[in-house]
Lab assay of single mutants.
Amino acid sequence: MIVFVRFNSSHGFPVEVDSDTSIFQLKEVVAKRQGVPADQLRVIFAGKELRNDWTVQNCDLDQQSIVHIVQRPWRKGQEMNATGGDDPRNAAGGCEREPQSLTRVDLSSSVLPGDSVGLAVILHTDSRKDSPPAGSPAGRSIYNSFYVYCKGPCQRVQPGKLRVQCSTCRQATLTLTQGPSCWDDVLIPNRMSGECQSPHCPGTSAEFFFKCGAHPTSDKETSVALHLIATNSRNITCITCTDVRSPVLVFQCNSRHVICLDCFHLYCVTRLNDRQFVHDPQLGYSLPCVAGCPNSLIKELHHFRILGEEQYNRYQQYGAEECVLQMGGVLCPRPGCGAGLLPEPDQRKVTCEGGNGLGCGFAFCRECKEAYHEGECSAVFEASGTTTQAYRVDERAAEQARWEAASKETIKKTTKPCPRCHVPVEKNGGCMHMKCPQPQCRLEWCWNCGCEWNRVCMGDHWFDV
């Protein structure tokens, strides 16, 4: 396979590697080409510095992935760790964990309700045991953590790749202090920090972006993250068709209702045909949960890209028209025109101005929308079919299609509260000796007794199943 190397943020060049090629071997190839010592090179990928003893497969490097290699003399205490030698983080029983690669970060837990604080980093599902597709590297999971809308060759929703760059020099040479644990960490600028490894760059702020994971991409090709779309790892039924499908869209209502993408497309087109989208002054033209839940309008309007190009163009047109109407304007009634106009409040005669090729020149009556006339309008008909009709959803289907309910059931079956801080902690095999993952707590306690870890627990039921 081919990976592209950008040395000291210059133009990239291809390097041929195998899945079992080590990072140090990659350094040696680059060092020979650039005429520099291999031990002064640092390989940066997806916000993480890659260790010498890791392989291309370990690092989730795919065909035509772009890695950054910078030349920086080692500072005291760094060289041993980078070589894969006596790194205290690798000691058996050590409590410190390697910062998780962005290629394996899962933010789907952050669609849980606000009262489930902490689960994004504490609760991990076991539903990723799908067998890898044919042709994928051994052991590589097909679980997708992110979804994007690819405006490039795909023109559809695709699995996405999370990447990070330095907000100062805009190069992907920043190593994160810690990985993101929720969508806010990724979507809110300057929320996460790190250290830029580019020479002479003092940058410390992280800037995240997404790429389409279905095809090789260049540095400049980015895609918009659709953070309401998630892999259906909890096997929730769709609120409309009641099938279990994946991926799904999880509405931001209190129940976190789930809808499959085909039904979401149908829901949007139906509402669009009836012009029953909601115009929100802050958000724009949007839709609420299909069950009509309060405070559930979709905030990231790129989710409506699921409509496809033709329907999305209609959505944008109707949204612009609705904006004009909300501002007190009118639409030209001549067939084939429909231009938005903003006449004076007491102006009865409205002319669709033909300047700049935008208007048709038609003069019409503001009251009856017919060709302009003197005197009273002959008839004014009330528009028919403008009443909002509820999208029919079966109550039982709505009850079963809740992301929140599956989460709470998982928590109930696989977790116990920490005796000190009461945060839910998952036990997935292993011994009875637990350690609270909350940095402010870190209590060592017994899963069996529910009390602080002691010699009695150690001698009596340390390794009970």
Score class of each variant (00 low, 15 high):
Asp20Thr: 09
Gln78Pro: 14
Gly357Cys: 08
Ser205Ile: 13
Gly336Leu: 09
Pro37Cys: 08
Ala214Leu: 07
Ala214Ser: 09
Asp464Ala: 15
Lys299Cys: 05
Asn448Gly: 10
Lys416Thr: 06
Ala46Pro: 00
Pro14Ser: 04
Arg334Val: 07
Leu297Asp: 04
Val56Lys: 01
Asn273Ser: 04
Arg42Ser: 14
Leu61Arg: 01
Pro199Ser: 08
Cys201Lys: 02
Gly328Ser: 05
Leu325Gln: 05
Lys349Arg: 13
Glu399Gln: 11
Gln252Thr: 12
His373Trp: 02
Gln197Thr: 13
Pro88Lys: 09
Lys129Met: 12
Glu310Val: 07
Cys449Glu: 03
Leu325Pro: 03
Val70Phe: 04
Lys161Gln: 11
Asn295Asp: 13
Val393Ser: 06
Arg140Tyr: 11
Leu41His: 01
Cys441Ser: 01
Glu452Cys: 15
Arg140Gln: 10
Cys241Ala: 00
Ala82Val: 14
Cys263Trp: 00
Asp460Val: 04
Cys449Tyr: 01
Ile142Cys: 11
Cys457Ile: 01
Leu176Ser: 03
Ala214Trp: 05
Gln71Gly: 04
Arg191Ala: 09
Gln347Arg: 10
Asp39Arg: 05
Phe7Val: 03
Thr415Arg: 10
Lys369Val: 04
Gly284Phe: 03
Phe210Ser: 00
Leu341Ile: 13
Cys457Gly: 02
Glu382His: 14
Leu176Arg: 02
Cys182Trp: 02
Asp87Leu: 12
Glu409Ile: 09
Pro37Gly: 06
Tyr312Ile: 03
Pro333Gly: 03
Asp274Arg: 03
Val121Pro: 15
Phe45Ile: 05
Ser223Phe: 06
Cys263Gln: 00
His461Trp: 00
Asp219Cys: 08
Gly292Ala: 08
Ala406Gln: 12
Arg420Phe: 15
Cys154Pro: 00
Tyr147Pro: 01
Gln78Ile: 14
Lys48Gly: 02
Ala82Lys: 13
Gln400Val: 15
Lys211Gly: 11
Pro333Cys: 03
Asp394Thr: 06
Arg128Gly: 14
Gly12Val: 05
His227Ile: 07
Lys161Thr: 11
Gly179His: 10
Ser167His: 07
Thr386Lys: 14
Glu426Phe: 08
Ser223Tyr: 07
Gln171Ala: 10
Pro202Thr: 12
Leu50Pro: 00
Lys408Asp: 12
Cys238Asn: 00
Thr222Val: 07
Glu370Gln: 07
His257Ser: 01
Asp464Glu: 15
Ile23Asp: 00
